[in-house]
């Protein structure tokens, strides 16, 4: 099994497509950092709106490494599913397309073993991608912009809020958020693998995965009460932004943030459970179908 995984990772590592993902992320993050270094104040003004009428604030302090990482993740974690599906959607279908699937399947392994290894490889790819994102968007941002308290601009129901998290209370939230993002992206990876079981070229499942994610994300953001109430809870993309929950700091009766606390841990936990249930369901269907499938490619 381990050698199978090594082989899968070797194959992924030798494909130019793999590095497209890393290059895309590097480019996006660097552009963000450059833009905010050059003119982060405009963004701050947009987010602060009329708060500046009542308060003075050192905006250059507010645009720090922690804040940058949040802004970058906010955008990037919408795009990363595309990159994950690029690898996951290709897992089985790509082999079918190349004609290597039939070769693999005549080797002395169970199909479920092979599929599991494919899943593991896609999962590890996702993790590598996230680690790379973390290095660039968090650690490089900290190097460029320094560390300070973090401001979160948030819309909660009908309310808008600005949360301030102390500098020494941020890092663990990022580790938790990246952990959560890993689970969320694994849902995409398993969806990609599931779709790739049914296809004989890699374009189909990749495009299908991306379309599903885009479609769900757009529906999630329509912001009409009837959809918020009856549709949103059924879309897994709703839960993919749950990593932000780690930055919604708990507030005491006086309106002060409580260091080290979370506003709504049960909501994050439930979202995690829902995401993991998606992973299990997608994988289950994928395993069942792959086991039964006649390999005609």
């Amino acid at each position: 099994m381990f050698s199978l995984l090594q082989i899968e990772l070797f194959k992924i590592s030798r494909r130019p497509r793999t590095y497209i993902a890393f290059a895309a992320i590097t480019a996006i993050v660097l552009i963000f950092q450059f833009a905010f270094k050059a003119d982060g104040e405009s963004y701050m003004n947009l987010m602060l709106q009329n708060v500046q009428d009542s308060f003075d604030l050192d905006k250059s302090k507010a645009i720090n490494g922690y804040f940058m990482c949040y802004i970058i993740l906010n955008t990037l974690l919408v795009q990363v599913p595309i990159l994950v599906s690029l690898i996951a959607g290709d897992a089985i279908s790509g082999e079918a397309n190349m004609g290597t699937l039939r070769l693999m399947l005549t080797k002395p392994y169970n199909r479920s073993q092979l599929l599991f290894v494919k899943f593991l490889a896609a999962f590890l790819f996702t993790i590598f991608l996230l680690v790379w994102i973390a290095i660039l968007s968090l650690f490089v941002s900290l190097l460029i912009f320094g560390a300070d308290d973090m401001l979160i601009f948030r819309v909660k129901g009908d309310e808008s809020q600005i949360l301030q998290i102390s500098k020494d209370d941020v890092l663990w939230r990022y580790f938790a958020a990246f952990g959560y993002a890993a689970v969320a992206l694994t849902v995409i990876a398993t969806l990609g693998i599931l779709l790739s079981v049914f296809a004989e070229n890699s374009i189909g499942p990749i495009v299908a995965t991306v379309c599903i994610v885009l479609f769900f994300t757009i529906v999630s953001n329509i912001n009409v009460p009837i959809i918020d109430k009856h549709v949103k809870p059924w879309l897994f993309t709703t839960y993919m932004v749950g990593w932000k929950g780690f930055f919604y700091i708990g507030i005491d009766n006086e309106g002060q943030p409580i260091k080290g606390s979370l506003e709504n841990w049960p909501a994050i936990r439930n979202s995690l459970v829902i995401l993991i249930a998606h992973i299990a369901t997608f994988l289950g269907i994928a395993f069942y179908s792959f086991q039964k499938k006649d390999i005609l490619s």
Partner: peptide
């Protein structure tokens, strides 16, 4: 002191909606 209401346009922040905000 008096402050003005703070309101961000919805959809600007892509927030995690845990369905807890009902005010």
């Amino acid at each position: 002191f008096n402050t003005k209401d703070y309101k961000l346009p919805k959809g600007l922040t892509f927030d995690f909606d845990d369905q807890s905000a009902k005010n």
